[in-house]
Amino acid sequence: MASQSPQNQASLYVPENIVHNVKTITFIRSSMSAITGSAAGILGLTGYSGFIFYALTAILTSFLIWSIKTNANPGIYFRNGSDVWTEGVFGGLFSYVLFWTLLYGIVHVYD
């Protein structure tokens, strides 16, 4: 496998299916960011505890994707097996902060 040229490497994979998998993972990540951000705002987390909560829920989401979506075998669906743990985590952080501050403001600040 390593001796092949990059062009042969590319023809080993189906590009449409790679795009479909990344799209599915991004959908899961962004939905979970919105929901966990809302939960952090409701619980009234501030400062570092909110980011720790995001890290914990991101690990939970990754574990659920790994166990339910890929049946503990991510190599079939991603070129790197570790993509299932890292894909879209930092993009989701921004929507997390958005929903966190929104719900914190609604519940804890204004009354």
Binding site: V14, I28, M32
Partner: peptide
């Protein structure tokens, strides 16, 4: 609150549909 987050995680993963194998 934590219960609703866990329920939602499972539901999003079920709604998202199956992944496709990428090997040609």
């Amino acid at each position: 609150c934590l219960f609703s987050v866990i329920i939602f995680a499972v539901s999003v993963i079920l709604v998202a549909g199956p992944l496709k194998p990428i090997l040609m």
